[in-house]
């Protein structure tokens, strides 16, 4: 069937014939395009003036109602819209100019292979070799070795300075383990409300309630945020019968006080505050990655990417009936790290 005179593949037919635009053939169309472009540029000029006028004339806190937005800041809207129009005027004008009035016949530029020709390559290699030769690189191995070593080492001081001075990591392991719940002088630390910093009586905590808690020692802290970042605690009261009957529930109960339990709020996954307490299911949910902990089962993980339960803070009451922590956390709080068990 196949005809020997036919080529094996189709051939590129070349550029199609050029089709002229309206503005190329019709002077009136060209004039119209010119007017459109000039109009766009004028819009830009006017908008620039509008921007400057609004900047000085509109008060910083004037509100205006805009459909789909609601009440909003007049100055922000005016400056933004005028700036946008000033820029869009130029942009649309320039592109419209290019499309309608500038030449639209396509131009062909030739390509050449990217690689250099052999002669050029040979010349470059020759120059390199001659340079190395004239520098006596190969004849003087001592120079080669010392220069190489010196170049290899010169960045070291900078690296040492940088790594050495960023921060002292020697206390890292010790500090990751400790919190300001750690009892120093044998005196148990009172639990206080996070914002008001008032102590909490056991009787204040009703069943179903959740308190966001800090240690009383936060008052004397010189590093409030750093200490808070490890010491934030969540306090809940459950009905004593709500805890699981097995060992997990037993631990939760024995470290708590009449159904009141305190757990570190810092997620064992990557450290977000686990704040979402569902008082019916007794589940704690982390809003960052949805790790879910079961308060009735010693805060073990029942869903999500965390592996370990939230560390529990042992609590009791002092003589005045205020909740206190007689000891700090038994394990490091927050995300895992290599030496956590050490």
């Amino acid at each position: 069937m196949s005809d020997p005179r036919l080529p094996a593949t189709f051939e590129n037919p070349g550029l199609p014939p050029h089709v002229h635009r309206a503005a190329d053939t019709d002077p009136r169309a060209a004039k119209r395009a010119e007017r459109q472009v000039a109009g766009l540029f004028t819009l830009s000029i006017l908008s620039t003036i509008g921007f400057v006028v609004s900047y000085f004339a509109v008060k910083n806190d004037t509100e205006v109602f805009v459909p789909f937005i609601g009440a909003t800041n007049l100055l922000n809207i005016l400056l933004g819209v005028f700036l946008a129009l000033a820029l869009l005027g130029i942009g649309f004008g320039a592109v419209h100019w290019a499309k309608t009035l500038m030449p639209d016949e396509e131009v062909v530029e030739e390509r050449h292979p990217i690689r250099s020709d052999d002669a050029t390559r040979a010349k470059a290699v020759g120059l390199l070799e001659a340079g190395a030769e004239s520098a006596q690189l190969n004849r003087r191995p001592l120079l080669k070795a010392t220069a190489g070593t010196a170049l290899g080492l010169f960045a070291l001081p900078l690296g040492v300075q940088l790594a050495g001075s960023l921060g002292n990591p020697t206390k890292a392991l010790e500090e990751l383990k400790s919190t300001i719940w750690d009892v120093k002088d044998g005196k148990p630390i009172r639990l206080v409300r996070d914002v008001e910093r008032t102590p909490i009586k056991a009787a204040d905590v009703s069943i179903g309630a959740v308190f966001h808690v800090l240690p009383e020692t936060i008052k004397d802290s010189h590093h409030v945020l750093e200490d808070k970042a490890k010491a934030a605690v969540l306090l809940m009261r459950l009905h004593p019968n709500d805890f699981a009957a097995d060992d997990l529930g037993k631990k939760a109960r024995s470290w708590g006080y009449e159904g009141i339990v305190a757990y570190s709020k810092i997620c064992t996954h990557v450290g977000c505050p686990v704040g979402l307490y569902e008082q019916q299911t007794h589940h704690l949910l982390c809003p960052c990655h949805q790790s879910t902990f079961d308060v009735t089962r010693d805060c073990e993980v029942i869903f999500g990417p965390a592996k370990r339960p939230l560390p529990q803070l042992k609590i009791t009451v002092d003589a005045e009936g205020y909740l206190v922590a007689p000891q700090g956390f038994a394990e490091p709080v927050g995300p895992s790290y290599w030496e956590r068990k050490k």
């Binding site: 921060g167 990591p169 890292a172 990557v270 450290g271 895992s336 790290y337 290599w338």
Partner: peptide, 27 residues
């Protein structure tokens, strides 16, 4: 805070790198 947790997860050097980057304890 999460980024600090990420860095801590790096085996062997994580906790030290975190302390160096944050210049001590977070934040």
């Amino acid at each position: 805070r999460a980024a600090e947790g990420f860095i801590r997860s790096v085996p062997v050097i994580g906790s030290y790198v975190s302390y160096m980057m944050f210049g001590g304890a977070f934040p």
